[in-house]
Design a binder for these strands. Structure first.
Lengths: 320, 320
DNA sequence: AAGCCAATTGCACAAACGTGCAGAACGGAA
DNA sequence: TTCCGTTCTGCACGTTTGTGCAATTGGCTT
């Protein structure tokens, strides 16, 4: 009987994680070597056969989480990270924990909206596989700009999500911002675009980072080729503090009258707030302003962020 | 800042399981020794902070499980165990895996009905903790017999369930069988008994083994002091093949006209079938007859059993 | 303040584990 | 059949992890 690799992995995982046998003992039962068992187990882990999750009982959660939860009304996951780590290391660890936290939330028949950006890119690299049926990954906003069509960058992110969850991927091949609002109106009437918009309207999960205009390190969108001088000054005049999926907002969460949003391809905040699970991933000290605005706008139902940011967020909220 | 042991365990678990750091690295971040981290992690595991579960996608499940599932319409978890192991070792491993499989099914506000017997005793020894709120563990059937009141034996089982899930424990201080049906009727009108019966009626989960009259190794109930000669021959005359919570059934699942059931303290099969999740744990070759009858009666929604029994069950079903 | 018990810590050693590497097994294509 | 490229396996080594033990800490009583 040629027991398949997959079913061996299942047996091994049951014996290892549910019966506490050592790999040695399992190897003997499976008539193979211990190293093979080690490999079977790691394949079981990263094909999603073994699900490890950490559930901190809400009432005993560390105070930091409790304070954010009560201040902003979101489910928080604070990622423990030393303050001394640099941005890149912090991002990596936040991304890994975010990826593993998201995993259990993805179900069959899900429609998963995914934005793009440095944060999402990092998250996408750490996703663990989980087999689902008839799931769809849909891009939230266009990625093209003046220099590139943005296809490869954003589509790599999408593809990784798709293959982790065995989902169909639906790209959104438009620029991040149209030059003319009229062009957007025209395109939004195209059936190819409407198909994507219809999917977005049915999303069950949305995953995004935030852009922030913190003076020290402005995010991707504010620096790299998406907006010109005049547009940036428009944003400043409108008191914009950040964006989610290239849709901008002010510090109080409002976004009415921000003209650039009329040319943006991301979902309106009203539309985004319709989505049941809205997961926001944030890493790095320079995102406080944007994050605070996004929370004020009620864009997220779950927030995953590093410890340092969490602390700044709490003191930020306390003083206001 | 005196970070509590619990919150350290949470941090450590996040770093270890969600960020793939080594214990060494975690120890440095927490400013403690690696061995402490090792201990923090094991405490995180067995206080239920870390939940490990194995989800075999139903469509790729090993054929054995698929066959039982389709033949009997229950959710099956086959425990991989070498056929050469003895009864005690098999029981231990089935019990451990059963305990860890049950864990994730227990929620807050659950009312958990628990039977007693060798199998349940073993399971109760391997439960992993999981904090729930306002859960109740209620005993399914009395445990007294002619020699003992059965209190300690059954109550140990109940107590372990209760402390694993932080649940209130409700014992059922009656004998397994009354000598006279009239006494049962009388007792069933007592308010103290009715309180238990009311809880049983609201159960959301029931957990039980099966008794079997397989000639080689009759179960506890059929051997040890619960029934006298005359009663045993009554059972034989009624073609009884086994019991669940001291309520008997025939091979086809029927139980009408089995007079001993009128004196038994367990829930009637009709009542049991009202419970949403009914988990049956079976270990050992000598339980096939009882198990087959229990399945025919539709008493279980989930079945956890060892591999050898699973195979016998399939061939048993095929020939009939 | 002194004394005691229980809980917690770090050390050191043994056990368990992950992985690069070289050889074996497999699966087409010629 | 032979060849070649790919995948899988076991070995050996270094790393990571569990745990008995003695020392220490911290709380509580006298």
């Amino acid at each position: 009987m040629p027991r398949s690799r997959h079913s061996d992995a299942l047996r091994a995982a049951q014996m290892y994680y549910l019966q506490d046998l050592t790999m040695d003992a399992i190897a003997r039962e499976l008539r193979t070597s211990r190293s093979t068992v080690s490999r079977l187990l790691s394949s079981a882990r990263d094909t999603g056969l073994v699900q490890i999750q950490i559930r901190s009982p809400l009432d005993t959660a560390p105070e930091l989480e409790g304070m954010i939860r009560s201040q902003y009304g979101v489910d928080v996951h604070v990622v423990p990270v030393l303050d001394t780590l640099n941005e890149a290391e912090t991002l990596d660890r936040v991304a890994m924990q975010a990826a593993r936290t998201i995993g259990p939330l993805v179900d069959s028949n899900a429609i998963i909206g995914v934005a793009w950006g440095a944060t999402l890119s990092a998250v996408s690299r750490h996703l663990t596989r989980k087999i689902t049926h008839d799931s769809i990954v849909v891009q939230l906003n266009g990625a093209g700009n003046m220099q590139t069509t943005g296809i490869t960058y954003a589509s790599d992110i999408m593809r990784r999500f798709g293959s982790a969850y065995g989902a169909r991927v639906e790209q959104f091949p438009v620029p991040a911002f149209f030059d003319h609002a009229a062009t957007k109106t025209a395109m939004w009437n195209e059936r190819s675009v409407q198909r994507i918009l219809a999917l977005q309207a049915r999303m069950s999960i949305a995953i995004f980072g935030v852009g922030s205009v913190d003076s020290d390190y402005p995010s991707h969108v504010y620096a790299g080729g998406y907006l010109d001088e005049r547009e940036l000054s428009l944003l400043a005049a409108d008191d914009v503090v950040g964006d989610v999926a290239t849709v901008f907002f002010r510090s109080d969460g409002s976004s009415d009258g921000i003209t650039l949003n009329e040319r943006s391809t991301g979902p309106s905040h009203d539309q985004l707030r319709q989505v049941r699970r809205r997961i926001c991933v944030v890493s790095g000290a320079s995102k406080i302003n944007g994050l605070q605005g996004a929370l004020a706008a009620g864009l997220a139902t779950e927030l995953i962020l590093d410890e340092a940011s969490a602390r700044r967020l709490v003191s930020f909220g306390a003083q206001s």
